[in-house]
Structures are given as structure tokens and as C-alpha cells.
Simulated scan of single mutants.
Amino acid sequence: MGEIGESSDPPFEEAYKKLFDEFNYAPRLSSEVDEVIAVDERELPLIDLEELSRGEMAREECKNKIARASQEWGFFQVVNHGIPREILETMRKEEVKLFKRPFKEKAMADKEFNFSEGSYRWGSPSASRVRELSWSEAFHVQLSDIYADGGNHHLSSIMRQVAIPLYELGQKLAAILAEKVGSSPTYFQETCLLTHSYIRMNRYPPRPISFHSLGLMPHTDSDFLTILHQDDVPGLQLVKHRKWVSVKPNPDALVINIGDLFEAWSNGIYRSVEHRVVTNSTRERFSTAFFLCPSYDTVISSSFEPRLYRRFTFKEFKEQVREDVKKIGHKVGLSRFLVVTDHS
């Protein structure tokens, strides 16, 4: 790739030159721009977790707010979550330093930090047109990698410091949601160990103003819960009432969203909602996401009848997602596991 390695940005325009050429020679595709413009900007339900440590009435009302937001939005945000701002800010600084490295160095960072092969990702290998291209780069790191690292790297040390309180927060919220549907709150302690989960560091570089590609394509998360720490640059959007809504950033809050596994486990009571990231033409955006996941052999099964989804393991779910992305270019997700479905 010549001298591209001197730049910190992935070589989007070189790698996807054919797609950009097709976009330029087909002006009618510009009408698709409307699809990446949200119709409204909204603030997610805001929940003060300090209420959990107050009287019984305040505690129960707080739990009800968490459950209600998970049913109606699939998303909410929390403040007074107990995670020191200093830890989150230190993690952000280390993340920025990592992404500012030359592209060639980032492409080789898996070996340097003992991350699993393929942890560094950028673009969309399956994209067949500009609107399917994710204008972003990320390090998707399994926490078992950083705990096996032995503490030899400063970045790994910082990731461990932030992972523990994020994991504890995820467990607390999962237990509340389980309690509110009458299930055992210990289920997640037994199936979702810290080393089963992931941290994903995201960077969304400024994209050329002439290309209206997304930072991250529409998707749902393949986990139980996701906890997101984002900067003040807008970009996160989600589907509400069948329309895209832009989420107003709150620098004091963490964003929580329900994943596919929780929707299946709760028999559809809690909703895994489609979301995406829209890029900015002038400002880069950073975020850090924590994914609360079970072991690969964990069976996902609802105790409610009639079941919407058949029993499946997390491994089976992940393999189906990979197969769909490889064959048709995108994730199908939970609809593959409906009790009654037809994909003929």
C-alpha cells in the first residue's frame, strides 16, 4: 500500500475506490442520503442509579424505570453509576493514542498486545456500494486476552481497570432486569464471567463530505447488555417507532442497550433495537463499548411459554451471524431462531 502506512487513517478511498467511482458516476444514488439523516434528536431515558441506595420506594421505582426503558426503548442512559470519571478519561486517552498510530502499526497491534488475531478491524469487507461501507476502525478485544497478557502493556492494564467496574455495572443491571421478569438474578453471575466479555474501542474518522457512508452499519448487538462510553460528538442513532432517531450525547452518562441474547432470554419482553453510527465530515468520534457475554457453550432459553425463540447456544448464534455475513453481506440475527420461521 505504498506510503499509506504513514497516515493514521485506514486507506478507505484506496481500498474502496471502485465503490466511490460507481457512486460518482451514478448521481441517482445520492437520493439515498436521506436514509442517513435522522428525523429527530432525542435524549434517551435518563436513570440516576443513586436511587438504588435510597429508600425502598426509590429503589423499586429506579428498577421499574430500568425495566420500562428496556421494554420501550431497548436503550437508556445512567448517571451516578459508580465508575470514576478518571478511569473513563484515562481509557479514552489511551484509546486516542492507539488510534493515532500509523495505520501499518495498528494493523500489527494484535501481536504487540497479544490480542486475538483479527481484533483490529476497519471498513466493511462485504460492502457492495458506498452506503454499505462502515467508515470506522475498531479494536474488538476479548477480555480473556488482556488477562492472559500478564500486565506487560500499559494499555492492557488500563483496560483491566475499566473492565472490572463496567462488568460489575453490567451484572447489577442484568440482575435487576432478571428480577423484574421474575427470573433468577444469579443467572448472569453463573454464565457471564468477566473473561467471556469484550471491550471494543471505536474511532470514526471524518469522512469526505461527498460520501454519505455510515460510521457503523445498522445492527443489533449479539450479547446480553452493552455499556457505551462516548465523547461529545453526535453520531449514535437508533430505531424508535420505525424511524431513525439521533441520540443527543450526554458526557456525564453511560449508554446502556439490550442485546439479542437478552431479548431471546426474556422472550421478547426486553428489546434488542437496531442502531447505527453516522459519521461527521469535520470531527472524529471516539467511543468505548463493553459487551456482557456468556461462555460459548451457554444455552440461551426462555422460561416463558410459548417461547418466541428456540433454544440455542451462544456459539451457535455467533456462527450463524458469521455465516450470514459471509453469504449475504449482513447479520440476520434473532429471526433465524424463531420457533416458527421459514427461510426457504
Rank of each mutant, 00 (worst) to 15 (best):
M1H: 11
M1Q: 11
G2E: 08
G5F: 02
S7C: 09
D9A: 09
E14Y: 10
K17N: 15
K18Y: 11
K18V: 14
F20C: 08
D21P: 09
N24I: 12
N24G: 08
L29M: 15
L29V: 11
D34M: 04
D34C: 06
L44I: 12
L44Q: 09
R54K: 15
M57P: 01
R59N: 10
K65T: 05
A69L: 01
A69M: 00
F75T: 05
V79I: 15
P84H: 02
I87R: 10
E89G: 05
E95D: 07
F99N: 07
R101L: 12
A107H: 07
M108Q: 15
D110H: 01
N114D: 08
S124P: 06
S126L: 08
A127V: 06
S128Q: 13
L133H: 04
D145C: 14
I146R: 04
Y147M: 04
A148W: 08
A148P: 08
N152G: 15
H154V: 15
S157C: 12
M159P: 10
A163V: 04
P165H: 09
L166N: 03
L169F: 04
K180R: 12
V181Q: 07
V181W: 03
S184P: 00
P185R: 04
L194G: 09
H196N: 15
S197Y: 06
R203L: 10
P205W: 00
H212C: 14
G215K: 10
L225K: 06
L228Q: 05
H229Y: 14
P234F: 06
P234V: 03
V245A: 05
V247G: 07
P251G: 03
L254K: 00
N257H: 11
G259H: 05
D260G: 12
I269A: 09
R276Q: 12
T282W: 00
A289M: 14
F291G: 07
Y296Q: 13
F304R: 13
P306L: 03
P306G: 05
V325T: 06
K327D: 09
G329K: 01
H330Y: 12
G333M: 08
